[in-house]
């Protein structure tokens, strides 16, 4: 296990390093000049040159890259071209919105999807089993922003129970307000996410239901519940967990849509603004942190799978390779 952990960690560091090179280079390949975003449209060449010099984009690329890496190594994400504010603290304040939003929505989605998916598989011949499958199919087709707009129309504009968007300026120091403003966004993500999760849980359950070992367990005298609990759940959860990891990562990255619909100051909206303004340090900082998060989530999902499924342990860390 230690060897596995070390290898996995090395993989993480290498991926992160590669990702940082790729995102640095890709960003520079984009058309447009960050100095343009800083200057007014009528700026003369001297004004543009001065802006370039001020943000350091007149330096050669390798120098800019090593400068950025040096900063990263000391835990500094750099300073925004546009606002002159350090990127790190702003990313942190945005994470205060995006992380609770994603995690709560994710938990809720799992709580909805696991029982619903199980029922949809186990009771697939009943009317409600079929209904659950149908609803989840429909749910996958619903665009996030559309669902957001419907929820806003019903719960904010008509009923007036919840805010239509925004986040308190003082953030979590106004906990009641902060929670109120996250209810609809969380619901939006959770509903859409659970729709696709239900399908995975359903098909994983179906696989297990039709498997030989479950039949054997039943033949040996276990009740359906016992057999499911001791043999089915574990087997069914392995593929579901790898999907969960991917879903969580894509929700984190895809939060930009929900953040835009609900005017939330999260990481996604920071990235969108940064891209529009060619604010390289901001874009790099957000993408670096997101990459790190995605890699960590993948790592965690992997780890959980190995704990659940001893076969994986044997195959990868037993020194067989």
């Amino acid at each position: 296990m230690t060897r596995y952990l070390l290898r996995r960690l090395a993989f993480l560091v290498v991926s992160l390093a590669l990702a940082s090179i790729v995102l640095f280079v890709l960003l520079r390949l984009l058309p447009g000049d960050p100095a343009n975003a800083l200057t007014s449209v009528g700026a003369d060449p001297e004004q543009i040159a001065a802006a370039r010099h001020a943000i350091g984009s007149d330096k050669p690329l390798p120098e800019q890259f090593t400068h950025w890496l040096g900063q990263l190594a000391s835990g500094d994400l750099g300073t925004s071209f546009v606002s002159s504010l350090p990127v790190g603290p702003e990313v942190a304040s945005r994470l205060n919105v995006t992380v609770p939003l994603t995690l709560i929505a994710f938990t809720l989605a799992v709580l909805i999807a696991v029982p619903a998916g199980f029922v949809a598989a186990h009771k697939r011949h009943t009317w409600y089993g079929a209904l659950l499958s149908g609803v989840s199919q429909l749910g996958i087709a619903v665009p996030v922003f559309w669902l957001g707009m419907i929820l806003i129309a019903v719960f904010a504009l008509n009923a007036g129970w919840l805010p239509a968007g925004g986040f308190p300026q003082d953030g979590w120091s106004e906990p009641a307000e902060a929670i109120r403003s996250l209810v609809l966004p969380v619901l939006t993500i959770a509903l859409v996410m659970s729709a696709s999760l239900i399908r995975y849980v359903r098909s994983a359950t179906l696989d297990v239901l039709g498997s030989d070992h479950l039949r054997t367990a039943r033949a040996l005298g276990s009740s359906f519940g016992q057999a499911m609990w001791r043999h089915g759940l574990r087997n069914a959860s392995v593929p579901v967990i790898s999907v969960l990891g991917i879903e969580l990562a894509s929700t984190l990255l895809g939060a930009v849509v929900v953040e835009s619909v609900y005017a939330l100051p999260g990481l996604g909206s920071m990235l969108a603004t940064g891209i529009a303004q060619h604010d390289y340090p901001v874009v790099q900082g957000v993408l670096f942190v997101s990459t790190l998060a995605v890699l960590l989530i993948g790592f965690a999902a992997d780890l959980v799978q190995r704990i659940i499924d001893p076969r994986l342990r044997g195959r990868l860390s037993g020194g067989a390779r």
């Binding site: 707009m149 904010a156 504009l157 239509a164 968007g165 925004g166 300026q169 835009s260 619909v261 005017a263």
Partner: peptide, 20 residues
């Protein structure tokens, strides 16, 4: 006076309609 910033005109109009 507080300026609230929105990226999307619909979100802005919703804020006005709900008194935010």
């Amino acid at each position: 006076a507080v300026f609230h910033y929105y990226k999307d005109a619909t979100a802005l109009n919703n804020a006005l309609a709900t008194g935010a």
